[in-house]
Design a protein around this nucleic acid. Structure first.
Lengths: 222, 222
DNA sequence: TCTGTATTCAACATAGTTATTGAATAGCGA
DNA sequence: TCGCTATTCAATAACTATGTTGAATACAGA
């Protein structure tokens, strides 16, 4: 009998180890960082800018995630890239789905924010693409598009959209997709398109949700 | 344009709402309560006893889980039963798998605690049952067995096992299953069986992991 | 070797969380 | 209606996490 631990001690250690992970996920700031990292690896300064916080603050949150082994780091030239650990993206998708299934308040928050940009789900998107000849554009930065995107999506970053309207057919529904349920890029794109007379809608998920549902993804092709 | 929120305000609210869920999961005590509730609904006092904590303490943790909508309550006669919300069990399974995939320390904690009780995984269990005529016993309390159990499992609660050895064939491998990866019942059963000359092994998962992998479950049949 | 800059560290004030204790409440069952 | 007991509340002290600031470090590139 080699183990000298009591069951209580073991449970303290085991649930404690689990809680190291859930504690690391237990902060809005860190959830936002994780949600960004789903799109691909990034250096600290870029993460800090994208989440509107001081660099030192972002760095500390990232270190918490690293201690919980939710991210890995790799030096790339003069910067250090943080990258999501395998499996984390799936857990984030599951957590957000659980939260939205259970909290009417959270649904209300997102629904009211995206009120003026008609949102469509995965099933509806598939139908619109197949049957109605809708055009799917991915409005994230090109680097993220190149990491992974929905099959058939065309990359038009939201900040370039106004200059590239000529690429879009005026008689088709344009569906914009972005990082995920809390990303505002697609809604911005939809508002711009609507203002220019296009019919447009926002895909409510991102690549992580698409993949979690068994959808295939493509890489590269800028 | 009805929504007056800025994107930053929206993100604060959205990630904050998500964090309400992850914060609630961010305590070893509450994780242990959730892990117990996976086995079925229970009143406060029973949860407190099973997790070795004062009732007031358990009650407060349960209320945190309730505010995060991870559990629901229902009065049953003179007691109040807490019950896991749908979908929570799957998330717990995913979180524990992620933690174990990433943390060598956590693997070491469980491996060393269960060192003297040979542990087998789902795949091996299926093979042993089909090809070697192994006998599967469920050593949880009967109430939990009746909620849900693995197909073909026989209920022999661990505290009754010593008195019911006659029910077990001496020439077969006995596999004991219990609540899940952090439950010590199966290991206790294996040690007892080994001391009485049986070949015995511990199934390392519980019904939640089994179901998450697409396995069917049975109910009742005490 | 040196310089510049991306990242981390240290220290602090503030805020929030946890465990514990004893008192209060609520609602079943008689 | 009333008593009983399961549960919750309130108050406290110890602890832990957060955001902020400015200084320190470490390393690529010259």
């Amino acid at each position: 009998m080699l183990n000298t631990e009591s069951p209580r001690q073991f449970k303290r250690a085991a649930y404690g180890g689990l809680a190291d992970v859930t504690k690391a996920l237990g902060s809005p700031r860190r959830l936002e960082l994780v949600d960004l990292l789903v799109q691909g690896p990034r250096p600290v300064e870029s993460l800090a800018r994208a989440t509107a916080q001081p660099i030192a603050s972002a760095s500390q949150h990232l270190q918490v995630l690293k201690r919980a082994r939710l991210v890995d780091t790799e030096r790339q030239g003069t910067t250090i890239e943080y990258r999501l650990a395998p499996g984390v993206s799936e857990v984030l998708v599951a957590l957000r789905r659980l939260a939205h299934a259970r909290s009417a308040e959270l649904r209300e928050t997102t629904d009211s924010f995206f009120e003026d940009a008609p949102s469509i789900d995965r099933e509806r998107l598939t139908a619109l693409l197949r049957e109605d000849g809708a055009v799917l554009i991915d409005v994230r930065p090109t680097a993220e598009f190149e990491q992974a995107h929905l099959p058939g999506a065309r990359s038009i970053p939201v900040e370039a959209l106004a200059d590239r309207l000529a690429e879009l057919p005026a008689d088709r529904l344009i569906v914009a997709c972005c990082r995920g349920p809390y990303c505002t890029f697609a809604a911005d794109a939809v508002r711009l398109l609507q203002a220019r007379g296009y019919r447009a809608a926002r895909f409510e998920d991102g690549v992580a949700e698409w993949a979690a549902d068994g959808g295939a993804l493509e890489a590269a092709r800028p």
